[in-house]
């Protein structure tokens, strides 16, 4: 199946002649494909018109979150159920960066950074990491209550990454984890609730969705009323 990325590269003139010839032939044989390719080409071509000037800083700026990193001191925790050991670090910053991002109604305001080779990068809904990378997170509380973070692996093993932590209104909970070499995908669930939610509650919710692969289970069903959650999908690469 052709990828949009390939069509974009074609539109940008980045494909070798053999690949271009192949795509041209495909367009000649398949009108539906030709229409798709034409649409992508049109989008990219239009976007090339008056491309704004790129403004780079005079010096490389470190992201505001960098100040968190100096405060980490890794603690080792024993692995559970025969799994690889995960080094788990709890961060208690004295002055977390002020965030202007609004809390999203019906969801949780979560910021995730991945630190690879000492370099932080902000992450979205899907994180691709290498063993040994560090995952940092910051969960903004929509109201006074507790924040807890759980990791659910593809084999549905549940691990607690952040024990229920009381947070004040407008407060936030921070944490970090050193990633192991677990080969399957996993979901990290960030959950706020007025009361602490233990591992058993999360495990029940995971079991309730027994027919849904973890990769597709972006929200846990049946959490106690009032729970607000958000999840990210965590994948490993060895590249």
């Amino acid at each position: 199946m052709e990828r949009r990325l390939t069509l974009e590269q074609w539109a940008l003139g980045k494909l070798p002649p053999a690949a271009v010839a192949e795509l041209e032939q495909r367009c000649a044989d398949d009108p539906d494909f030709a229409e798709w390719a034409a649409r992508v080409r049109s989008e990219v071509t239009a976007a090339a018109v008056d491309l704004p000037m790129l403004r780079l800083p005079a010096e490389v700026d470190e992201p505001a979150a960098a100040s968190w990193f100096d405060r980490f001191s890794p603690l080792a925790l024993a692995g559970a159920a025969g799994l690889a050991v995960i080094a788990f670090t709890i961060l208690l910053p004295s002055a977390p960066p002020v965030q202007q991002t609004p809390t999203w109604r019906g969801s949780l305001d979560v910021q995730v950074h991945l630190i690879h080779a000492g370099e932080p990068s902000e992450q979205g809904a899907i994180v691709t990491a290498r063993p040994g990378d560090r995952l940092q997170f910051r969960v903004a509380a929509p109201a006074a209550g507790t924040v807890q973070v759980y990791d659910v692996q593809a084999d549905r093993t549940v691990q607690q990454w952040l024990a229920p932590r009381p947070v004040a209104a407008q407060g936030a909970a921070n944490g970090a984890v050193l990633l192991d070499d677990y080969a399957g995908g996993e979901r990290v669930y960030f959950v706020w609730h007025p009361r602490p939610l233990g591992t058993a509650v999360i495990a029940d919710a995971v079991e309730r969705a027994y027919d849904t692969p973890i990769a597709d289970l972006d929200t846990l069903p049946g959490l106690p009323k009032g729970a607000v959650q958000r999840s990210i999908l965590l994948l490993r690469t060895t590249e």
Partner: peptide
Amino acid sequence: TRAEFHELYAGYGPAARASCRA
């Protein structure tokens, strides 16, 4: 380098801009 990065922007920026617009 900065120059290389600007080249990267010129070369691939339109595709990223098209996705951002979408």
